[in-house]
Amino acid sequence: MAEEKHHITSYKTYLLVLVALIIFTLLSVTITQIELSRWATVAALLIAGIKSTFVLLVFMHLKFDLRIFRVMVGLIISLLVVVIFITMLDFLFR
């Protein structure tokens, strides 16, 4: 348990990520306002996925942290996806 050197993220990085997040938000709003019907939702969710990756990696410091945290977060999210998938097996084929 040696004292780990803490990574200090610069204000600039945070601001850049924030700008990116806001642009993505506006993008998803724009995409869903024009008629693309079924793909619009998919795109909006995809963008939400990208945004959350940014938040996880930079704001929540996963990028600079111990590997075990990244592994755990990845596993937990996959778990949730698998559970939703298995539940949908019932409703999709009923």
């Binding site: 698998v82 559970v83 298995i86 019932d90 409703f91 999709l92 084929f93 009923r94």
Partner: peptide, 17 residues
Amino acid sequence: YFVWGHHMFTSGMSGTA
């Protein structure tokens, strides 16, 4: 974690489930 449905075999789930 993924076997919960075996409590519901007669509740009307889809065949796939």
